[in-house]
């Protein structure tokens, strides 16, 4: 018990020490690479190592100076909106498509080659085409997320459908379930854990894509903010941005993992 607690808290702490040591040494050897201390001050405010009074990034996250200069909260919010927009679309289209591909050999053969071809295409390759089509930053970001994050949802949903055991389908046949009842009462319960696995991968991709997309489209958003800080030579803020992206990505993964567990019948009765 005590050993477990030590492992749980002390080891990650040890990891943090290693990271800070490497970081400090980088800051020491590379000119104007921000030190951990200055980065901390830059994030939360205070007096930095040059004895400058700093207003931290998180001191006033809600400020709105003008359309192009808003607090970090608004940057994150705008990124999250786009991610969830594209992600929701990907679910809306991907789940039914995956169900069809999983249930029908014809649909599988019709779509599978193109899924395999488009799946590995980088979001950055889609972006110019979509920007040209939509001529709008928001729509382009959402569409890019949609088109790069839909594949794991389709693939995992289809996989879920295919993993429905013939025994369960025989039960449905004996009871003379209609096709709709078969999907609702037999196929979906089996496929849901798979669908959530797909959604989890998909959300991870979406969060990766948004940073790159916003760097190119500009305007507002955490990706744009990081790029903008680079252009303004605020290297502290790039590091802060990386941490924000990492923490939010981690948080999103935990949340969707919890939701997935809730709907996973294999975890029922063990809760």
């Amino acid at each position: 018990m005590r050993y477990a607690a030590v492992r749980r808290w002390l080891l990650p702490l040890l990891g943090a020490v290693v990271i800070l040591a490497v970081w400090s040494s980088l800051a020491h050897h590379i000119e104007s690479f921000p030190s951990p201390y200055d980065t901390y001050i830059q994030a939360f405010g205070g007096v930095n190592s040059n004895a400058e009074e700093i207003t931290g990034v998180f001191s006033d996250p809600f400020y709105v100076a003008n359309e192009d200069d808003k607090g970090i909260f608004w940057q994150i919010l705008s990124s999250l909106e786009r991610v969830f927009g594209g992600f929701a679309l990907a679910i809306l289209v991907g789940v039914p498509l995956g169900l069809m591909i999983g249930m029908s050999e014809v649909m599988f053969e019709l779509f599978n080659p193109y899924i395999q071809i488009f799946k590995p295409v980088s979001p950055l390759a889609w972006l110019p085409l979509l920007l040209f089509v939509f001529q709008d930053i928001n729509m382009t970001a959402i569409a890019t997320i949609f088109i790069t994050s839909i594949w794991p949802i389709i693939i995992n949903t289809a996989l879920g459908v295919r993993s429905v055991s013939q025994d369960y389908l025989n039960v449905a046949r004996v009871l003379r379930f209609s096709p709709l009842e078969k999907v609702r009462k037999i196929i979906l319960p089996v496929a849901v854990p798979f669908i959530f696995t797909g959604m989890r991968l998909s959300l991870g991709i979406a969060w990766l894509v948004i940073v790159a997309a916003e760097m190119l489209t500009g305007g507002i958003g955490i990706g744009f903010w990081i790029w903008n800080e680079y252009n303004s030579l605020n290297y502290h803020n790039i590091i802060i941005g990386i941490m924000i992206v990492g923490l939010i990505g981690f948080g999103l993964d935990i949340i969707i993992g919890r939701i997935a567990d809730y709907f996973d019948y294999t975890k029922k009765g063990k809760r």
């Binding site: 025994d167 369960y168 025989n170 039960v171 004996v174 009871l175 009462k185 089996v190 019948y265 029922k268």
Partner: peptide
């Protein structure tokens, strides 16, 4: 074709694992 007037007890029971005992009978 299959139908409920010829009920089957399968060798591996074929209960739906996401339903309780009660619900497995109820669904039928």
């Amino acid at each position: 074709g299959p139908g409920p007037e010829r009920a089957v007890v399968f060798q591996n029971h074929s209960l739906l694992p996401w339903l309780t005992v009660y619900q497995n009978i109820e669904i039928a």
